[in-house]
Design a protein around this nucleic acid. Structure first.
Lengths: 340, 340
DNA sequence: TTGAAAGCGCTAACAA
DNA sequence: TTGTTAGCGCTTTCAA
């Protein structure tokens, strides 16, 4: 049986109230009493029942995070790293993380609703925002605190952290153009995601600034997995006039592109250039190492969570919308030598 | 303000008790009363306060999972997939998952203790068990339900699911020996992990059964990351008599090995064979696709959680210790053609 | 400086 | 079939 303040009260001959106050370090308890109570509490191995504490306080010190899983082979390294980032801030502020898994769709909102109305969490961290995101709408309506990694379309005002995907792609395209590429293809993630539209826009605009275009046959779509990157790349390579460079909307797909190329006996970075986006740890260990746009996922997870917690605590964060400037990591997959 | 049963009681003119009973579908409530209460509850948008419910029930319907993070670039895809597996079972039984992050070490046990004594969780899912695992000792002492993915050393009896790593490595080594390899090197994960010892044992025993050995210079250690796989492989390739095959203790390190080989202009699967362990999704998309041992991470996560929940619910699972038989996935990184 | 008492929202034993 | 009452473990007003 776990120790309660009642047990401590009995043991010390003090009242429950006094015990509670002593344990919280209030100054309306005599030093001797406090000393006694604290000592006994330690001896008995007391730790507060957080459920009771929270019921009383009407605050859970818990943030919610719902993983958008897509079935068994769901292993985007993104989420491990992001979760680690959330965890670092949560721990720092003594918050817990309540995680559940739920594929986007009908029942998704239900999962959020249950946690909100069940008063299980004080707020949410959102990822993979969509252009029209029902989650954001719902959380705003219910005035539930949340911070998102990613933006939506339209003029809705809410706290977010995002990386400027358009600028990121600008760096990539400019790099390729500088290397002399004219026929550049792009494998885009599904356009329901806002980041996908941003990145596509970045590709198109930069291409057009350089006097080039992204013809329809060079624009294909993948589902963010390596497998789809490979499949789409195969189609691109089968074209009568295949591209000389392929940009993938994320690193995972870029890996697929590389293996499609290598399967034909061609050399990545020599016969054909490949670039990705995200700079997941694995991208420096591929052959050749992947040129990509760095995205500090851990730091973003950590920042998002910190903002959220401040909002929950009623502090007003000095800034609630961050648009991070991306950085191009030049490795060897585009043929250029690394700069450092 | 959220709706409580008190509000419903007031509105319907019934007592709090009756409302509670009607909402739970007890049969000692008249049909009309029940119908009325349920209707009003829906109208008012009632959902129970889970905190209160749990405080009363003395059960949290929550399982704990502590991620062993190792700093910013923590993105082992293993955890995403495993967590998705946990989530699938948890959702099925209406359980929540409380996640926190904590690197192994001094404060690790503290993290478990806080959740246990704070009565925040009903039990734990453990991963990456170590040969002598303080977490298991602690949870057993406090009689906290838990199920582990992985075993420990010694004769401690507890519920676990594990894959037979020794048999897995046997399949790999036999495959390589069959292909004619005599000089086989092995990059082992840190031996504090039980799975690392199992896999090493499997390599050594099978080698010795085949009349071969694993000389000291062919046994090196990595930390499970691609980077370390690469570094260790470079050392192996620099040997006066380099191995003709390199087995990595996990897929991530195997990727590192492949890129070390390719960096020298050699061909994986032709000049030198490479094998991994885990069969993470990415391993079929590398170039060449990686021969490895399949580990159904999602299913294991799901099974572990299901067993745990049954234990928590007081049911006696028919079986609490699973040792899964591994399956070799032959792709092209060892030079053999895929079977299917 | 201390304690009695109320209440957070809920469940359940008991009585009516 | 229904309501009264107590209590889960805690915090906090209020009065002493």
């Amino acid at each position: 049986m776990p120790v309660t303040i009642k047990d401590i009260a009995k043991r010390t001959g003090k009242s429950i109230t006094t015990v509670s106050r002593a344990l919280h370090g209030y100054n309306d308890v005599s030093p001797e009493t406090r000393e006694l109570i604290v000592r006994v509490a330690n001896e008995m191995g007391y730790t507060p029942n957080l459920l009771a504490q929270r019921l009383q306080k009407q605050r859970t010190d818990t943030i919610g995070f719902i993983l958008p899983t897509f079935g068994p082979r769901f292993s985007d390294p993104f989420f491990s790293e992001f979760l680690a980032g959330i965890g670092s801030s949560a721990t720092k502020y003594g918050f817990d993380i309540l995680v559940s898994t739920q594929p986007p769709g009908e029942k998704e909102l239900e999962a959020y609703r249950k946690k909100v109305t069940g008063r299980q969490v004080d707020g949410f961290v959102l990822v993979r925002t969509r252009c029209h995101d029902p989650r954001i709408q719902y959380l705003r309506e219910t005035r539930t605190p949340f911070v998102a990694f990613g933006r939506t379309e339209g003029e809705i005002d809410y706290p977010y952290v995002d990386e400027d995907g358009a600028s990121g792609m600008r760096l990539v395209v400019e790099h390729l153009v500088r290397l002399g590429h004219q026929r550049i293809a792009y494998i885009s993630p599904p356009l329901i995601f806002t980041f996908a539209r941003d990145r596509l826009r970045g590709v198109q605009e930069t291409l057009s600034d350089a006097g080039l275009t992204l013809p329809d046959m060079y624009l294909v779509y993948g589902d963010l997995t390596q497998r789809s990157g490979k499949v789409q790349a195969q189609a691109l390579l089968d074209l009568f006039e295949p591209p000389t460079a392929i940009i993938a909307g994320n690193d995972l797909m870029a890996f697929g592109v590389m293996s499609a190329i290598q399967e034909r006996g061609w050399k990545v970075g020599k016969d054909i250039a490949v670039a990705g986006f995200d700079d997941i740890p694995m991208s420096e260990a591929t052959h050749p190492p992947l040129t990509t746009v760095h995205q500090p996922i851990y730091q973003i997870g950590s920042l998002v969570t910190e903002i959220l917690i401040k909002i929950i605590l009623g502090e007003t964060p000095e800034q609630t919308q961050y648009l991070m400037k991306p950085r191009l990591i030049i490795r060897q997959s585009c043929g250029a030598q690394s700069d450092h």
